[in-house]
């Protein structure tokens, strides 16, 4: 089992009570994952940063609604997923999932995957329908449970499982074709 990716539950509560340093800890802890998710959903760094910034500002403004018995991670990703949908809808005329700016490529080599193959993965990901890409990213890249994914997306578990399966089937075929 992969280690938990959630944060100490006391930190969101401190942020809720007005502790800006605690809020900064939240941003520091989650922003890479948020950026990654937003980038793969939106395709461009600028859009991703906009979505992530909007997400955290919205989180800050509504921390009072965060229940002490709730987990922060799915709450955050629910807001982020909605922000991404908003940005994507606004800019849907953009068709290509072209990443801009400098991307750290070291990880691909560390995983034993060539840069070419990584680009193929990203190209295949881009071609997935948005709801399948969302489900695949949440499940396989962000390591979230289906229960958390249901909270984030508002979609039923069975439908989410089917989306992930279809995404994996498509990716598998595409990646094998490229080999």
């Amino acid at each position: 089992m992969r280690p938990s990716t959630d944060i100490d539950p006391a930190i969101p509560l401190r942020a809720r009570d007005g502790d800006v340093e605690a809020f900064a800890e939240l941003v520091e802890f989650f922003h890479v994952r948020c950026l990654r998710y937003a980038r793969y959903m939106l395709g461009e760094e600028e859009d991703a940063e906009e979505a992530v910034q909007d997400t955290f500002v919205r989180v800050y403004d509504h921390l009072g609604q965060f229940r002490p018995d709730a987990r922060f991670e799915p709450w955050l990703f629910r807001i982020l997923a909605n922000r991404c949908r908003t940005v994507r809808e606004r800019r849907r005329r953009r068709e290509s999932l072209v990443t801009t700016g400098e991307l750290p490529a070291v990880a691909a080599e560390a995983e034993g995957m060539s840069q070419d193959l990584l680009e193929e993965v990203e190209a295949a990901l881009e071609e997935l329908p948005a709801e399948q890409r969302e489900a695949f990213l949440l499940r396989h890249v962000e390591d979230l449970s289906y229960e958390d994914m249901a909270v984030i997306t508002g979609v039923r578990l069975s439908a989410l499982r089917m989306r992930v399966k279809r995404a994996c089937d498509t990716l598998r075929i595409r990646l094998k074709e490229e080999r």
């Binding site: 520091e28 922003h31 890479v32 691909a108 995983e111 990901l125």
Partner: peptide, 24 residues
């Protein structure tokens, strides 16, 4: 294959201190 693809996607991004500072 899926696990390797997901792992590569996971490590594709780095911290962005500029964005963190801007948000805070």
């Amino acid at each position: 294959l899926i696990d390797r693809a997901a792992a590569a996607l996971r490590r594709r991004h780095a911290p962005n201190p500029r964005l963190v500072s801007r948000i805070v």
